[in-house]
C-alpha cells in the first residue's frame, strides 16, 4: 500500500527553465507520481493555478525554487507579484524548501549581471546571506542544471524523515561529497599526467590544458551519469564546475595555472599533489601515449 502523497509547489525566479526541463527527464516519473503530487508547476496545466496557490492558505510539503531571486520587480515578477510576495508568502506554508539549481542556491549565471540585487535564496555566491539571511528548512541542490535524481532522491529522503547530512552550502553529502572527477573514464590519464591533445579524442585528461574542473567540483555526475548515459567528460568536454558557487568562472576552456602548474584537486595540499605529479610525469607510459584503439597491435 502506498502512503499519503506529499505535495509540491514549484516556483521560478530569474531562470532559463533548465532545472524544470532536467526534472522532466526523470525516468521513473510514474512511480514518483504515486508518492508525490505536483500541485503547481509553471509549465504545466495542473490542479492549481498560480492565483489559487498564491491566494490559498493550505499548507503543503515542498516548495521548490528554481532560478535566482531579486527584490527588483522591474526585472522579475510573476503574474504581477514581485518575488517578495511570492517567496515569503509560500515559504510560510511549506514544510521544506528546496533550491533546485545553482541560480536558486547562489544566484548562478544571472547574478553576474548585478551582484548587488540578484541572489540565491540563502547565498550570494560564496557569501552566506542571499535573498534571506538564513532559514532552517532549506536544502540546496546546486547544478546548472540540477540532475533529476538529485531532486527526486532528496524529496524521498525528506518525505521519509531521513536525516539529510549537508555540507557548508547546505547540499546533501550523499550527492555532493563526490567529485565530478570520480568515475571519469579518463582517470588513468589523470594519474599519469597525460593530457588530451586538443579536443575530439577519447584519450587524455582534460585537466591540464582544457580547463576541466572535475577534481574540484562537488557532484556525482560521473557516478550516476546524465540522461542515464553520459557526462561532459565522457564526450570529451571539460567539467565547467556548474555545482559550485563561482559558476560560471571566466575562461572555461583554459586551465588556470600558477607558475604553469594547475590548481591542486580539492582538499589535497599543493605539496602532496605536485610531488606526486612530478613523479608520475617523470615516467613515459607508452600505452597511455598511444591511441586507445591502435591499429598497429
Amino acid at each position: 500500500m502506498r502512503r499519503k502523497k506529499s505535495s509540491i509547489v514549484w516556483i521560478q525566479g530569474i531562470t532559463c527553465n533548465g532545472d524544470s526541463h532536467s526534472f522532466y527527464n526523470y525516468e521513473s516519473m510514474k512511480s514518483f507520481s504515486k508518492d508525490f503530487e505536483m500541485l503547481y508547476h509553471p509549465l504545466l496545466l495542473l490542479k492549481k493555478s498560480f492565483q489559487e496557490i498564491i491566494e490559498g492558505e493550505d499548507a503543503f510539503d515542498f516548495l521548490i525554487i528554481e532560478g535566482a531571486l531579486s527584490k527588483d520587480k522591474s526585472i522579475i515578477e510573476r503574474f504581477g507579484y514581485g518575488m517578495e510576495d511570492i517567496v515569503d508568502a509560500l515559504s510560510k506554508r511549506a514544510k521544506h524548501i528546496i533550491c533546485a539549481g545553482s541560480c536558486a542556491c547562489y544566484g548562478g549565471v544571472f547574478r553576474l549581471r548585478d551582484e548587488k540585487s540578484i541572489f540565491g535564496l540563502l547565498f550570494s555566491g560564496k557569501q552566506k546571506g542571499g535573498y534571506w539571511k538564513d532559514s532552517s528548512n532549506v536544502i540546496n541542490l546546486s547544478g546548472c542544471p540540477v540532475h533529476p535524481s538529485w531532486i527526486v532522491d532528496t524529496l524521498y529522503a525528506l518525505k521519509e524523515n531521513k536525516k539529510v547530512i549537508t555540507d557548508e552550502f547546505l547540499r546533501p553529502k550523499e550527492i555532493y561529497a563526490y567529485l565530478a572527477h570520480h568515475g571519469c573514464i579518463r582517470n588513468e590519464y589523470f594519474e599519469w599526467k597525460v593530457d588530451c591533445k586538443g579536443f575530439g579524442h577519447k584519450e587524455g585528461c582534460l585537466f591540464y590544458e582544457q580547463g576541466c574542473l572535475g577534481p574540484m567540483t562537488h557532484a556525482n555526475c560521473n557516478k550516476i551519469l546524465w540522461n542515464n548515459v553520459s557526462s561532459k567528460t565522457r564526450v570529451g568536454s571539460p567539467c565547467v564546475g556548474c555545482t559550485e558557487f563561482d559558476f560560471p568562472r571566466k575562461s572555461l576552456y583554459e586551465t588556470q595555472t600558477n607558475m604553469s602548474l594547475p590548481q591542486a584537486p580539492v582538499g589535497i595540499s599543493k605539496r602532496a599533489y605536485y610531488a606526486l605529479a612530478g613523479v608520475a610525469k617523470g615516467f613515459k607510459i607508452e600505452r597511455l601515449e598511444k591511441r586507445l584503439m591502435d591499429e598497429d597491435n
Binding site: G200, N227, S230, K232, V235, S237, Y253
Partner: peptide, 22 residues
Amino acid sequence: GSIFSGQWPHASFLMAGGVTCD
C-alpha cells in the same frame, strides 16, 4: 542525443573545428 552531447539540457560538446566527442 546525450550519447553525443554528454547531457541535456545544457550540453557541452561543441568546439571550434568540430565536436568534442569521439
